[in-house]
Design a protein around this nucleic acid. Structure first.
Lengths: 242, 242
DNA sequence: GTTATCGGCATGTCTAGATGAGTTTACTTG
DNA sequence: CAAGTAAACTCATCTAGACATGCCGATAAC
């Protein structure tokens, strides 16, 4: 274990040094899901007041490393998930490969006319009816992303009624015998809009990664799904391999 | 002016009530850029301890409403920009486009020992001397991204003195006859840290895209550069074509 | 066996005060 | 008048202590 020397005169705030030290220890010695020692204990160990220690832990919470719960303790969170963007990478598979369970919750299922962005990306005329499917994905009970899917209604007429959860791509594959392939992704970041912060259980001031992607029929190349995904930026890391 | 009644027994935290009250007053009576009364004054006005009032102001900072500066005061910020989808998507740029007509300004050029993250990605032992090059890129006078480059000192001994700007990859190519190839990128988003907000001329509460990338010698596959880029998220959109 | 209660321990909130450090203002001095 | 300096004002950090509130397991009552 490295020295836990807190330098009180070096200019750097004590709580900041403690935060760094704790971050280090967490990444080395703690399993996700395990609990930190209590604030009182940690304060004693570092030789600081409990308030100072709490300030340090607040830093760790900001960076999404730990989570406090009243009466229980401070829990170490999972490391951000590595999401490899490729042609066939699918969220569900990716997580199940890591031994995590992904749950998809349907938030909205509507028929709407395609506006410019959606119409353009799906390659259909404006006002063509499309299905707007809004889903929330959770991994081990914790929300990871909100996705707005847009698919042409004509192509998947029964989806409005019969899709009730699970992998959308699997649903399309088994009901329509069509495989999808990702052709392009646009990535940017914003602060969460609308209900996203609430749905993702995150503060309004922390950013989300927005990924726009178009999926085409793997055989014909026709665009069949346009998806706009908002990931909690502190829980996801996109890996791009050229 | 509305009543400023703080209910100390209603279950809601005092700081939270004050935050709400202040938010209300700010939106009604304060111009962006103006300063709030000092913490001591506000604490007196609400009849609470200064720490409690500071906690309330922290809430306001979290929601990006105000900004504190040491010694000056607490300033009301501009209303958050409404991110309309597609408004800024004209800035679409390829991540690969290194040779843009961008101006590169060198912020720092130092020799440091490689710490764990840098050492691991460059495949060198810890504390190996590396060059830490911090650059700011501007397009049309507007700051675009800040990049921290790390290259092994031993491999590029003269770079500390002779690199004075322009494309780093071109510099390496013409001085060392080595072409670089990007092997992987990790993308996430955070709020700007350190001086980044100031350098990028953006508010603290708007996110940056962080891209970690490793560049290797195109012939040998040896990692030669590790770069951590922070893009203004409102000016960039990464396009990923699998 | 099941339920209720209670105590110990965790985090959450609030107060009080001291000191440090950056910024601005006003005054003093040359 | 100008420059330098000191005071006053700002936020920043740290300490100390008190009490509230939520969680959980152990024990007691049913």
């Amino acid at each position: 274990m490295s020295l836990l020397a807190i330098n009180r005169f070096g200019g750097e705030a004590v709580y900041s040094q403690i935060a760094r030290q704790l971050e280090n220890e967490i990444q080395r010695f703690y399993q996700p899901g395990s609990y930190l020692p209590s604030e009182a204990l940690l304060a004693q160990r570092f030789g600081v007041n409990r308030h100072t220690l709490r300030r340090a832990i607040e830093e760790l919470m900001q960076s999404g490393l730990v989570e406090r719960s009243h009466g229980k303790g401070t829990r170490v969170l999972d490391a951000p998930i590595d999401y490899t963007l490729g042609q066939n990478t699918r969220f569900t598979e990716l997580l199940e490969a890591e031994g995590m369970t992904a749950v998809t919750r349907i938030l909205r299922k509507l028929q709407i006319p395609a506006r410019d962005g959606v119409a353009k990306r799906l390659g259909v005329p404006e006002n063509t009816p499309v299905i707007w499917l809004e889903t929330l994905r959770l991994v081990d009970e914790r929300p990871y992303c909100v996705i707005s899917h847009f698919v042409p209604l004509q192509r998947f007429p029964e989806m409005l009624d019969s899709y009730t959860g699970g992998s959308l791509h699997d649903f399309i594959l088994s009901n329509y015998q069509v495989s999808l392939r990702r052709v392009e992704s646009l990535v940017t970041a914003t602060l969460p809009l609308g209900d996203d912060a609430g749905l993702l259980h995150m503060p309004q001031h922390q950013p989300v990664l927005r990924v726009k992607s178009v999926n085409v029929d793997v055989t014909t190349g026709v665009p069949l799904e346009y998806a706009l995904t908002r990931f909690r930026a502190d829980r996801i890391q996109l890996r791009i391999c050229p």
